[in-house]
């Protein structure tokens, strides 16, 4: 049983580390601020949750698991809020997105800010 949990945790940790790395790589490689948000999104959702699940598996049924679940829920709710706040702030000062077709950026479509 312990062996099964260890194998599962290894899988979750490797997958989590992979997604954290991929997300950050995206943040480095992608061409502009708006696209980098998507890269950071990978880290914040799948990478974080997989690593926290691996830790929960290792902790077993205890107070530690409850606290890890709380951290995971908290990040699940705050990370999209922070991302939206960032995107909204950048949009409000008129930061131009890279590569977006001009028809998406017509003044009529972006007036309210």
């Amino acid at each position: 049983m312990q062996l099964l949990i260890d194998i599962l945790s290894w899988g979750f940790i490797l997958a989590g580390v992979f997604f954290v790395f991929t997300g950050t790589l995206g943040m480095l490689r992608l061409p502009d601020f708006y696209t980098r948000l998507h890269g950071a999104g990978i880290t914040d959702t799948l990478g974080t949750e997989l690593l926290l699940i691996a830790m929960m598996l290792q902790a077993g049924w205890s107070l530690v698991t409850v606290k890890l679940a709380m951290i995971s829920l908290f990040i699940f709710f705050t990370s999209p809020t922070a991302t939206h706040a960032l995107a909204n702030a950048a949009n409000a000062v008129g930061l131009r997105p890279f590569g977006v077709p001009a028809k998406d950026l017509e003044p009529g479509k972006r007036e309210k800010r």
């Binding site: 954290v20 943040m27 950071a40 880290t43 830790m55 890890l68 922070a82 950048a90």
Partner: peptide
């Protein structure tokens, strides 16, 4: 831009949370 830096800081913080737990 400033927003790239704030995004990097936020992302750094998320990873720090995980690192502290680990």
């Amino acid at each position: 831009t400033l927003y790239d830096r704030v995004l990097a800081g936020n992302s750094f913080g998320t990873k720090t949370v995980l690192l502290i737990a680990v």
